[in-house]
Design a protein around this nucleic acid. Structure first.
Lengths: 190, 190
DNA sequence: GTCTATACGTAGATAGAC
DNA sequence: GTCTATCTACGTATAGAC
C-alpha cells in the first residue's frame, strides 16, 4: 500500500513496521518519530493522536484488502472465484506481512478507539469471501452460514500464511499455497 | 484451566480476563491487582515481574491445550482423529475464549520476553494436528507440508470460533462446527 | 504472605520558535 | 509544516510495615 511520498507516508510506514512486531500498544510515538526521521511534533501535526494515526493505518490497509479481493473475484464464479480469492489473499499477506500480523492481533479486540472502523473493514473483506461461498454453494447461503465459512477459510489462509512468513520463510510459496488448498479441498476430511 | 484457589489463581484469572480484551501490553498491574482483589505488592510477591506473570499464564493455558488435544486424539486414527481434534479445539476455544483471543494476538509476535516459551507451546499444539495429518495422509508427510496444513486447519477453527464467540455469540454451536467441517471437507473447493 | 506508600522512568500530548 | 523543549500522568517495580 505504501505509495505516495511525504511526511504522512513516512509516518504510516514507520508505524506499521514497528507495530507489526511490537503491537500497537507496544509502539511508542517516540519510536515512530525516530524511524520515520521526523520530530514527534510532526506526528501530532499530521495525526491528531496516536489512536487516529493507527486508525488511519488500519483503514488504509484493510480497506485496500477489500478492494484487492473484489478485483480478484471480478468475473469469476464458483470454485474458480474461491481459488482466486485464496491465492490473492496469500499474495497480499506475503507482500504485507506487517499488516497481516497487525490484523491477526487486533481483529478480535473490542476495546479500541477505532473498533467500529476495523469491524466494518473486516466485515467488508469477509463479505467478499462470503458472497463467493454463497454463490458457489446455495445450500450454505440458505443455512446462513456463509459468513462462518468465510471466517474459516480466511483464518486458514491467514494462519498458514503467517506461519510461513514468520517461522518458516525459506519454504517455497507454492508449497504453502498447495497445503492451504489441500486442507480446504477435503484432502484431509473427505 | 482455572482450578486451584488462592492468591496466585486469583491473579492469573484476573490477568487473563483483562488481557483478553485489552491485550497484555494494555493491561496494567494496577488493573490486575484491583480485579483480583489483592494489593499490587502481592502481584510482585507471587510473580517476579509482569513478564513472568504472563509467561506463567500462557504456559498454563497453552500447555493444557496440548494435553487436551493429545487426549482427544488418543486411540483414534485417520479422518476420525482429525474430526475429534477439531471438535475438541472448538470446545476449548469456547470454554477459554479469553485465552484463545490472547493466543491469536500473541502468536506471531517475535519481540516478547516469553517468546521461546510460547513458541514451544504453540509448536507442541500444532504438532498434534500435524501428526494426525501425517498419519491420515502419508503423501503429505512425505512432502513435509503436514505442519503447514496443521496451521491451516488450526487457523480455520480459531478464526471461525472467535468470530462466533466475539461477534455472533447467539449462533448455535453446531452451526459453527458444521461450517468449519464443511469448509475443511472440500464442500467449497472439491 | 499481604498490605501501603513511594521512587523512577517513560509515554502521550502540547507550546511556541523557526 | 516541522522542529525542540516541556508538562503531566501513568506504569513498573521496590521498600518496609504488619
Amino acid at each position: 500500500m505504501p505509495r505516495a511520498t511525504g511526511t504522512k507516508r513516512a509516518i504510516l510506514d514507520a508505524a506499521l513496521e514497528l507495530a507489526a512486531t511490537r503491537g500497537i500498544t507496544g509502539t511508542t510515538m517516540d519510536d515512530v518519530a525516530e524511524l520515520a526521521h521526523v520530530a514527534k511534533g510532526s506526528l501530532y501535526y499530521n495525526f491528531s493522536s496516536k489512536d487516529k494515526l493507527f486508525e488511519a493505518l488500519l483503514e488504509e490497509g484493510v480497506g485496500s484488502l477489500s478492494d484487492s479481493l473484489r478485483a480478484a473475484r471480478d468475473g469469476l464464479h464458483g470454485r474458480e472465484a474461491l481459488v482466486a480469492l485464496i491465492a490473492v489473499l496469500l499474495d497480499l499477506i506475503e507482500s504485507n506481512a506487517g499488516l497481516a500480523k497487525l490484523m491477526a492481533a487486533e481483529i478480535f479486540r473490542t476495546d479500541r478507539a477505532w473498533q467500529k472502523t476495523l469491524f466494518a473493514l473486516r466485515h467488508e473483506a469477509l463479505a467478499v469471501f462470503a458472497e463467493a461461498i454463497a454463490e458457489a454453494r446455495p445450500a450454505t447461503a440458505a443455512a446462513g452460514t456463509s459468513g462462518l465459512m468465510a471466517s474459516s477459510v480466511f483464518g486458514a489462509v491467514l494462519m498458514a500464511g503467517l506461519e510461513w512468513l514468520v517461522f518458516d520463510p525459506d519454504r517455497d510459496r507454492d508449497e504453502v499455497s498447495g497445503a492451504i488448498l489441500e486442507s480446504l479441498s477435503g484432502g484431509l476430511l473427505a
